[in-house]
């Protein structure tokens, strides 16, 4: 098969040893049907066992393998290698602290994620014996695409606000909170809108739309952020400080 050589310039950093990140170059033969992750796996197996990065599903659904490829946030298991020239630069996702090499630390996101209460809030929980809620296909369609987020963090790496204002909730967390606000089974809008208006407020977003452009799952977080702004404003305007059904 049409093998071709490519040079990978990979960012390396081991906090035990290095003061600052460096790069290392690997020249390997690649196959035409490879994704960027295939090249990293080849390097790891056959050239340099010390390279650290995350991956698992290799089918673009677990969200582990986000990295900067030639300066753009990419899901490397989905990223077609043949689109690049002879040299490919691979670095950890931007806007995150680095644990090591290509591994980022996203405790900050996990904390923001929890803050938007990404679960169903109701004044009174439905009993199992009552069966499922009725939800029409249209009601489902209202929030479905916002529920497709794989938490890959590409949108944070692309977001110009996150880089300036680390406290900003950020695209994925807002999209996920908003997803529950739109769910016909949920009554937690008030509680979440309060979060949306609080620290890391949704109003920091400058609607640059970068997040939606890099999203590998077409979640369109920019739209979610925009809708969340409107929801949070209306709620505030109505003077509703307490959540609709009351639960916190």
């Amino acid at each position: 098969m049409g093998e071709q050589k490519k040079t990978f310039v990979v960012t390396r950093f081991d906090p035990d040893r290095d003061d600052a990140p460096t790069t290392r170059e690997y020249e390997i033969a690649v196959q035409p049907d490879w994704k960027t992750l295939d090249a990293l796996n080849f390097i790891k197996d056959h050239v340099d066992g010390t390279l650290a990065y995350r991956w698992s599903c290799r089918m673009a659904v677990c969200g582990s393998c986000g990295m900067m490829v030639n300066g753009e946030p990419r899901l490397t298991c989905k990223d077609v290698l043949s689109q690049y020239g002879d040299t490919v630069h691979i670095a950890p996702l931007a806007n995150f602290p680095v644990v090591r090499d290509l591994v980022i630390e996203f405790d900050g996101f996990m904390e923001k994620f929890e803050r938007v209460k990404p679960w169903i809030l109701r004044a009174k929980e439905k009993a199992v014996e009552e069966g499922t809620h009725r939800q029409s296909p249209e009601q489902l369609a209202d929030f479905q695409h916002f529920s497709m987020c794989i938490n890959c963090m590409l949108c944070y790496a692309a977001c110009p606000v996150v880089s300036n204002e680390p406290a900003f909730l950020g695209p994925a967390a807002i999209a996920l909170g908003h997803r529950y606000n739109l769910d016909s089974r949920d009554e937690g809008n008030g509680a979440r809108n309060q979060v949306f208006r609080g620290d890391g407020t949704v109003f920091s977003c400058s609607y640059a739309n970068e997040c939606s452009e890099v999203c590998p799952k077409k979640v369109d977080p920019a739209a979610a952020v925009n809708q969340a702004k409107i929801g949070a404003l209306l709620d505030w305007a109505k003077g509703l400080v307490l959540p609709r059904g009351g639960p916190e």
Binding site: W119, I120, E125, K126, V128, G131, T132, H133, R134, Q135, S136, P137, Q139, L140, F143, Q144, S147, Y180, D183, R185, D186
Partner: peptide, 17 residues
Amino acid sequence: ILLEHWGCPWSRNEDGT
């Protein structure tokens, strides 16, 4: 059903079941 109550977006029939 529990998963449905917890928010799982199960696909639906026209009548919402």
